[in-house]
Amino acid sequence: NKFNKEMRNAYWEILHLPNLNEEQKNAFIQSLYDDPSQSANLLAEAKKLNDAQA
């Protein structure tokens, strides 16, 4: 299933973003579980936030 793979990839990438705190990571990961079809968008948002907090 495409979403499972996308979701897993997004999950791991978000988990390893160095500039997000636990609360931010948890919020993105919760959103992933709530709507796996948004994995790519959530990952993009997480990366933007990560870069902004660098």
Rank of each mutant, 00 (worst) to 15 (best):
Y11D: 01
F3N: 12
N1G: 02
L32V: 06
E22M: 15
Q24T: 10
Q38F: 04
L17A: 07
A52D: 08
R8N: 12
A44L: 10
L43E: 03
D51H: 04
A46Q: 00
L32P: 00
A52H: 13
N26D: 12
S39W: 15
A54S: 12
L17M: 15
Q24W: 08
A10S: 04
K5Y: 05
K47G: 04
K48I: 07
K47P: 00
K2V: 07
I29K: 11
P36F: 07
S31H: 06
Y33Q: 04
I29M: 03
A27N: 11
D34F: 12
L43M: 08
A52E: 08
N1I: 03
A52S: 12
R8E: 15
N41R: 05
N4A: 01
E13S: 12
N26K: 07
L43G: 03
N50Y: 01
S39N: 03
A44G: 06
F28A: 05
N21D: 13
A10F: 03
R8M: 10
L32D: 00
A52W: 12
Y11M: 15
E13V: 09
E45V: 12
S31M: 08
N1S: 03
L15V: 13
D51Q: 13
N9P: 02
L43H: 04
D35S: 09
E22Q: 08
K25W: 01
A27Y: 11
N50R: 03
I14Y: 00
Q24E: 10
N21A: 10
I29R: 06
F28V: 05
S31E: 05
A10T: 09
P36E: 03
S37D: 06
A44V: 12
N50I: 01
L32I: 05
E6A: 04
L43V: 08
K5A: 05
P36S: 05
L17R: 02
N19D: 05
A46W: 01
Q38L: 11
D34H: 14
F3H: 13
Y11G: 03
L15Y: 12
A54T: 14
E23V: 12
E6Y: 02
K2L: 10
A52L: 12
E13I: 14
Y33K: 03
D34S: 10
A52Y: 13
Q38P: 02
A10M: 02
N1Q: 03
P18S: 04
A27S: 15
A10N: 03
F28S: 04
A40Y: 15
L20Y: 00
N41T: 10
F28Y: 10
S37F: 09
D51L: 11
D35P: 01
A40S: 11
L15H: 06
E6H: 03
A54L: 06
F28H: 04
N26T: 15
N1F: 02
